[in-house]
Computed example of a mutant assay.
Amino acid sequence: MDTTGKPLFCDTGLAERIERAEVQLITDGNAAARRRNGDGKGFLKPVTGGVAAFAEDESPLNKVAGLGFGGVPDDALLDEIEQAFADRGAPVQVELAHVADPAVGAVLTERGYRLTSYENVLGFPLPGEHGRPAPEGIEIRPSGEEEFDRWIEVVADGFAHPDTQGVPSHEEFPREVIAAAVRDLVGAAGMRRYSAVRDGALVGGASARMADGIAQLTGAATAPAHRRRGVQTALLAARLADAAAAGCDIAVITTQPGSKSQENAQRQGFHLLYTRAVLVKQV
């Protein structure tokens, strides 16, 4: 846990670095989904430093991310992106950091995008105090290939039954789509997988991607029957320890505002860095 008491300040340089890591994560997951489907429906388009991605119908990877740090997209490019989503019967969802160029938000508003939701990006400075506490009866260990399918099931079930604390998510995804997206992301992005075991049963899972000094802590979920027992806190601490050992200087996590996940992260010493506004246009 970070005990310095000093807030972690996020300037535009740090935000851009985190957003670039997010763009790469989406790019890798999108590529895996397109290989899996092989139907030519998916697409990936660069957008002024960001990316517009469509993986498959109803996928959480269908979005525009990373805008606001490489210029403002012009009308012709936005026309092309909106048409690509319209051709697939999907809305355009843009996740825009509040520290990005405000001109991007103005352009999107003028084109009819509506503010739908928010998500918070939190960060933990590394190295720091990052012990691996695990409540009695809970074991956190690397997840091997022999349990990959079971790990996917547990994580997908956890996401399919979200915690109700905080601001509700504006999105709901079919369980099978969640499972496919998690499999694509974990398999394509070189992530480390972690399992939480309680009384001999796999009750939670999480993953982490470490690149360019950033540890992206992703995919954390606990089976509903085993929540409020410290599983998420133990998974978080284990990934922080490994991120520090890998030489990362910051770990980041994305949460719903006011959620149990945000509460757990802040108790572990995470700082709120910035908020992404979720802007949606029905096309």
Score class of each variant (00 low, 15 high):
D75M: 10
D199I: 11
S169R: 10
A97Y: 05
G200A: 03
G105D: 07
L25W: 11
E22Q: 14
V23W: 04
V177S: 07
G105I: 05
L77R: 04
H226M: 11
Q256A: 15
F69Q: 04
D57Q: 15
T222R: 01
G144P: 09
I138S: 00
Q83K: 13
G89C: 09
A238I: 00
Q93L: 13
R111W: 04
V182C: 10
D2K: 03
P162N: 07
A220K: 02
A86K: 11
V231P: 03
G105A: 14
T254V: 13
I138R: 00
L235A: 01
M191V: 05
A100I: 06
V155T: 08
Y118F: 15
A156K: 03
V104N: 03
K63Q: 15
A180K: 10
G66A: 09
P125Q: 07
R111C: 04
Q93T: 15
G89Y: 10
G230F: 03
L67D: 01
K260G: 09
G66I: 01
A215G: 06
V197T: 03
S143Y: 03
A225E: 14
Q165P: 05
A31S: 13
E146V: 09
G112W: 15
A160E: 07
F9D: 14
D199C: 08
A265K: 00
F54K: 07
K260E: 13
A106F: 11
T254R: 04
E146D: 15
G42F: 06
T164K: 14
H130V: 15
T255C: 01
R209K: 11
G205V: 03
D212W: 06
T275P: 04
Q216L: 14
E119M: 12
C10M: 09
D199R: 13
G187W: 02
K281C: 03
A180H: 12
P135I: 02
G70N: 09
F85G: 02
A223I: 10
V107Y: 06
V23E: 04
A31W: 03
V154F: 05
F85T: 06
E145S: 13
R111E: 02
S207W: 00
E263L: 13
I140S: 00
H170V: 10
G112I: 13
G200K: 09
Q266E: 14
Q262N: 08
T233W: 02
A76N: 12
E110H: 13
L14G: 06
L202I: 00
N62I: 05
G128R: 10
G230W: 01
T109C: 09
Q83S: 14
A208M: 15
A15G: 15
R183A: 15
M210G: 05
R35I: 13
L235I: 00
D184G: 04
S195Y: 07
R114F: 08
E263Y: 14
F54A: 03
G230R: 01
A15E: 11
C10I: 08
A21H: 12
V121H: 08
G213V: 06
V104T: 06
E176V: 11
G158C: 01
A237L: 05
G137F: 03
S59W: 06
A244W: 02
L115A: 12
P162S: 06
A245K: 11
P102C: 05
I214M: 10
T233V: 07
A241P: 05
G219L: 12
A31Y: 06
T27A: 15
L202S: 04
E145R: 15
F159W: 14
R141F: 05
A97V: 06
N264F: 02
D163W: 07
D249C: 08
E176Y: 11
E176C: 09
L272S: 12
G128W: 05
Y118W: 15
